[in-house]
């Protein structure tokens, strides 16, 4: 029994899943109705589905953020703003420049979505160039888009909120006709599968970890480390674009000021919660995704407990600090010393 327990504890996914279960347990005591899933109007309905649905954006961002953190030991803090930029770009193309509220669209939806994704990819590429070629600290390089992307989004929308009251545009963020599962969940599953295929079927995952662990050694081994770093930032930008389009479709509008607000923090938090070191190197994608849903579960729980959305960042901040402190080498060393001291004391007593 003890052996299985210690084996289980060594699993990389142990801590993330434990945290998710803990959060869900709070709900079990507070309100068992949290777990009920019903079918209403032909679609699935319930708080759990809500967590999976609302957590989609964070999960998608976490996929990109994991790679960025692994490869460069830095974070891409522009993802939230880039989400807003992608949403604004996509909606601008669909509605036509200068229109604020349209019932029909001027371009096919696919074009709008692709434009949104391209905006994300473009921002990611610029970030990647600055980090990989110009050797600027990742946080500082992405700081530029952190400020500029929302402002550019506002320019694209002529400083207004574009509403696209066109039924098919809502499919991406809500429900496809005759499909009971919310579309964002399906999109997230698709993106995760693609990411896994790309990482596992090619040597990209190994290269990323190698560059993250030691950039110079990898270069000497013949890996184009600048290129790997660039690719990771580009993927992160693309993920931000996809998340932005989903967020925009959810509210069938492009609100550049509010889409993706604080999401950079959530994505970083998801990676940290997933048991990944923020110092780069080895990564565990599944952990990040579990982390993303944990965050959404926490937010839904807080909302269910009656904490306002403005106040919930306090809990998030405390959580982040707890996680990074527990992860920090200083704390680990201190715990280790304590354990050794205890063992010695135990021996003496015996």
């Amino acid at each position: 029994m003890k052996e299985t327990w210690s084996k289980l504890r060594k699993q990389p996914l142990f801590m993330p899943i434990l945290m998710l279960i803990l959060v869900l347990l709070i709900n079990l005591f507070k309100d068992p109705g949290f777990f009920s899933i019903a079918v209403k109007n032909g679609v699935l309905y319930g708080r759990l589905i809500d967590v999976l649905n609302r957590g989609s954006e964070i999960a998608i961002l976490a996929v990109g953020q994991t790679l960025v953190i692994a490869v460069s030991a830095g974070t891409d803090i522009s993802v939230g703003s880039v989400m807003a930029l992608a949403a604004s770009g996509g909606c601008m193309v669909l509605a036509g420049y200068g229109n604020t509220s349209v019932t029909g669209i001027v371009a096919p939806i696919a074009v709008g979505v692709i434009v949104g994704l391209l905006f994300g990819l473009g921002s990611g590429c610029i970030n990647g160039l600055m980090v990989s070629k110009l050797k600027i600290q990742p946080m500082v390089a992405t700081l530029i888009f952190f400020t500029a992307a929302r402002a550019i989004g506002l320019l694209l929308c002529n400083n207004q909120i574009i509403y696209i009251r066109y039924e098919p545009y809502k499919y991406l963020g809500n429900f496809l006709p005759h499909v009971p599962i919310p579309t964002p969940i399906l999109v997230t599953i698709l993106i995760i599968i693609i990411a896994q295929l790309v990482l596992k079927r090619t040597s990209l995952e190994m290269y990323i970890q190698s560059v993250g662990i030691n950039n110079r050694a990898s270069r000497i081994c013949g890996i184009n480390s600048d290129m790997i770093c660039f690719i990771c930032y580009a993927i992160c930008g693309l993920c931000a674009g996809a998340a932005g389009m989903i967020a925009s479709s959810r509210i069938y509008s492009a609100d550049s000021n509010n889409i993706g607000l604080n999401y950079e923090m959530y994505s970083i938090l998801a990676v940290a919660l997933g048991g990944n070191s923020l110092a780069g190197g080895k990564f565990n994608m599944a952990g990040s995704i579990v982390g993303a849903y944990t965050i959404q579960a926490i937010m839904t729980t807080l909302l269910a407990l009656g904490v306002s959305t403005d106040q919930s960042p306090v809990f998030m901040a405390i959580l982040v600090i707890l996680i990074v402190v527990i992860q920090s080498p200083v704390f680990k060393k201190w715990m280790e010393e304590r354990r050794v001291r205890r063992a010695e004391a135990g021996k003496e007593a015996a």
Binding site: M265, Q311, A317, V320, I321, V324
Partner: peptide, 24 residues
């Protein structure tokens, strides 16, 4: 300084904490 955590992460948590406390 004493826990060796990246300044960015610490102050980002501070950023959220401050904004949340303002709402509190």
């Amino acid at each position: 300084a004493y826990m060796n955590i990246q300044p960015f992460i610490v102050t980002m948590a501070g950023m959220f904490f401050g904004r949340g406390m303002t709402a509190v």
